[in-house]
């Protein structure tokens, strides 16, 4: 009697087993894909941040200002706004023949050298720094 029952229900059971197996595999594949995409996304985000980091922006600002000072003549001045496309400029200094720029909290240790026969000074104003060549 039981065997007859089992035989009668066999196609349904087999169908259910097949469906569970396929659903299970699909479930695992989706989970794995999501995990891998998440990890690779994190990797790309961190790498992009590394490439576009504060050090590069600091370098850009220091070298741009140094070149401006190199080509300036007496009486010229340059304004660098604190809210800059390269980040928030915390400080700009001109000392010992070098330009130092602090960007987004990153201090400058090395700076970039400039050459000028004039005196170069930096004045801080509420929303900008003014580099004067006199």
């Amino acid at each position: 009697m039981e065997n007859k029952k089992n035989i009668k229900n066999a196609p349904v059971i087999n169908f259910k087993n097949k469906m569970n197996k396929r659903g299970s595999i699909l479930n695992k594949v989706i989970v794995q894909i999501i995990l891998i995409v998440f990890i690779l996304g994190m990797f790309l985000w961190v790498t992009a941040d590394r490439i576009n980091n504060r050090g590069v922006r600091q370098q850009v600002l220091e070298k741009e200002i140094a070149l401006l000072v190199d080509s300036a003549v007496s009486g010229m001045s340059f304004e660098i706004y604190k809210l800059n496309v390269n980040g928030i400029v915390n400080n700009i200094e001109a000392k010992n023949g070098n330009i130092f720029v602090s960007v987004d909290g990153l201090s400058s240790l090395k700076g970039y050298s400039y050459f000028s026969k004039y005196d170069v000074s930096v004045i801080e104003e509420p929303n900008k720094f003014v580099v004067k060549v006199e």
């Binding site: 995990l35 990797f43 961190v46």
Partner: peptide, 25 residues
Amino acid sequence: VLAVSAISFTIFFLSSMFYDYEISV
């Protein structure tokens, strides 16, 4: 997942060591 993570971090740290972006003026 651990293997993918390990490979990703290894590539990231190696590229950080050798990636030296210098703007030459």
